[in-house]
Computed example of a mutant assay.
Amino acid sequence: MAHIVLFHSILGRRPVEGEIAAVFEADGHTVSVPDLYGGEAADDYDAGFALRRAVGTEAIIERARRAVEAAPAEAVLAGVSFGAALVGEFWQQRPAMAGALLFAGIAEWMDPPRAGLPVAAHIARPDPFDDEDYFAGWLAGQGEADVELHRYDGAGHYFLDPALADYDEAAARLCLDRSRDFLARL
């Protein structure tokens, strides 16, 4: 079973990250969900971006780094939106990482992308924060990484969170089922 480090979205650690973790834990995985904002959370994206600025990049990166360092070398790095982008801060230093699981966002590729690295990304289509050229460019840069890009037509950006207007129950269920399958193959 995998050890997963799941970084929360720009909104902070909210109940949904615990719900996602519980799905994976029910399959026997170990999941840590570091609180990158020190107990603060937001209910909308504007407040989330303001909170991120208030906490500061240095504190966020340090909290994320501590969580990654506490995990086994082969841990799966995962994240939601802003949290998915954080994966890109660490995967270069994780040569034994078993895989990456990205929700509602992607991470900048390591240079070069590790051959055979399993990566699954789950993105709404259209995504309100990034256009289709952005995702096409990301795919073009995958090198020899083993990438699965799943798109969810008509779903909101953070379609996994039932507390948001973005929520799409069918997309969330499909995303979690695909993620469970991905983790089972690692």
Rank of each mutant, 00 (worst) to 15 (best):
A50E: 15
D43L: 10
G79F: 02
I60F: 09
L51G: 07
H3K: 11
I61V: 13
A96P: 13
Y134E: 07
D130N: 14
L149D: 08
F7W: 09
H150R: 14
E58S: 09
R13E: 10
A140F: 00
P34C: 03
D111V: 12
A155Y: 04
C175A: 14
A155N: 05
A78E: 08
G156C: 14
V33C: 15
E69Q: 09
Y152A: 03
G18Q: 14
D43M: 06
H122S: 11
S179G: 09
A172V: 04
A73H: 07
E62N: 12
R53H: 14
G18T: 12
A136L: 06
G12L: 01
A96Q: 15
V33S: 13
G48N: 02
L149F: 05
V5G: 05
W91S: 13
F103D: 04
S9E: 14
V76W: 05
R94S: 02
A50D: 15
V147G: 11
A22S: 10
P126A: 01
V147Q: 04
G154R: 06
A73P: 10
A184F: 11
A67M: 03
A78R: 07
A2F: 09
R53Y: 11
R66Y: 01
V119A: 07
P112M: 05
D153M: 09
H150V: 03
A100T: 11
L149R: 10
P72R: 09
R66A: 05
A170Q: 14
V68L: 05
V23P: 02
W138V: 01
I4R: 07
G88R: 06
S179T: 12
A75T: 08
A136P: 01
A54F: 12
S32T: 15
D146P: 03
A104I: 07
D166F: 04
R13A: 09
R66M: 01
F129C: 10
A145V: 04
S81T: 07
A107S: 08
A50H: 10
G99Y: 11
V16Q: 11
I61S: 06
A41V: 12
V76S: 09
M110G: 08
V87Q: 05
A98D: 00
D177F: 00
R178E: 12
I10E: 08
G28F: 06
A155G: 01
G39P: 00
R94P: 03
Y152F: 13
R178L: 11
A145I: 03
H8C: 04
A136G: 08
D111S: 14
A115R: 10
A73T: 09
I123N: 13
A140P: 00
A115W: 00
E40R: 15
R63T: 07
V68M: 07
A67L: 03
G88Q: 10
G79D: 02
